[in-house]
């Protein structure tokens, strides 16, 4: 009888510990929201939200500071767009190739190597963008400045190919074989089957892959901090230097910013903007991926 009781207590205690561990993740999210909100709140006490959202200049460290976030957002979106122009077509094509064309053996070899692209430290990619790709690009585009949006954008695009290709490929592989056979039986080629049947069937998953790619690109830091230059710049010209939200946070953190000053608070306002941007994409992505799991 007593043994039964101690067993019950032990089981209960263990379950509680495990539950608390799982709950810790919720606690982390809450902390992120609280910390970002609290510090941004301090920021918005000093800077009106309207100025923050509509101002066209971001110069918080100047003697006469200006706090318009638009240049940082435009920098983030510019580099993200360049990255997506590279990553989406290449990633999707690679996924179609791996899922529908590649012989099994080749796929087993290529897939893990492709995943390595996502494992390379981003600071190494930054080195590569600044010291390898930019000089090469400058040979073709003489106007390209040493720091620019184009080079880190391209490198970032290649960096996120595995995110796009592996989730897309999973979604395509989840399309049941009998749907493909239906298409082949009508005399369709692999290409026709892939684009007219498999991709539409895997649509949610491919969309989720794209969303994950976008979210990665928005949040990526080091490539931009190293190779894009440190100048907030409201421009759509990929040949000019720009600064992203993430790169701004890094730039400020590298200096010695006293706790509690307005400069200190700007990084949280920028962080909050960044967090909200990625949050929207993450939630859409989660919802889309859940849909594929339910589809079959």
């Amino acid at each position: 009888m007593k043994r039964k009781l101690t067993r019950k207590i032990k089981e209960g205690a263990i379950e509680t510990i495990l539950f608390l561990s799982a709950l810790s993740s919720v606690f982390i999210t809450i902390s992120i929201v609280v910390v970002l909100s609290y510090e941004s709140f301090g920021f918005f006490k000093e800077v009106p939200l309207i100025e923050f959202l509509t101002g066209r200049e971001w110069t918080p460290l100047f003697a006469e500071p200006k706090f318009g976030i638009l240049p940082l957002i435009s920098g983030t979106l510019l580099i993200t767009s360049i990255a997506l122009i590279v990553a989406l077509p290449l990633g999707l094509t690679a996924a179609v190739y791996l899922s529908e064309y590649a012989p099994h053996r080749l796929k087993e070899i290529i897939k893990p190597i492709l995943e390595l692209l996502a494992a390379v430290p981003t600071v190494v990619y930054g080195y590569f963008a600044l010291l390898f790709l930019t000089p090469i690009l400058q040979k073709f585009i003489p106007d390209l400045s040493g720091f620019n949006a184009l080079s880190p954008g391209i490198i970032m695009g290649i960096m996120i190919i595995p995110y796009v290709s592996s989730v897309s490929e999973d979604a395509m592989r989840a399309v049941p074989m009998h749907i493909r056979e239906g298409s082949y039986a009508m005399g369709a080629t692999k290409l026709q089957t892939a684009f007219k049947v498999v991709i539409p069937s895997a649509f949610s998953g491919i969309a989720a892959a794209f969303i994950i790619g976008i979210s990665r690109a928005i949040g990526e830091t080091m490539v931009v901090a190293i190779a894009a230059g440190g100048m907030p710049n409201l421009t759509a010209n990929p040949l000019e230097p720009v600064q992203t939200l993430t790169a701004y946070i890094v730039a400020v953190s590298l200096g010695d910013v006293p706790h509690g000053t307005i400069e200190y608070k700007t990084i949280f306002a920028a962080g909050m903007t960044l967090f909200l941007m990625t949050l929207v994409f993450n939630i859409i992505g989660f919802w889309l991926r859940k849909r594929i799991r339910e589809a079959y």
Binding site: H178, E181, M186, G187
Partner: peptide
């Protein structure tokens, strides 16, 4: 396959 069609065990319409 363009001359000989097939109907499968499980209905397999396309997502169209």
């Amino acid at each position: 396959r363009m001359q000989i069609s097939m109907v499968f065990q499980k209905p397999n319409p396309f997502p169209k």
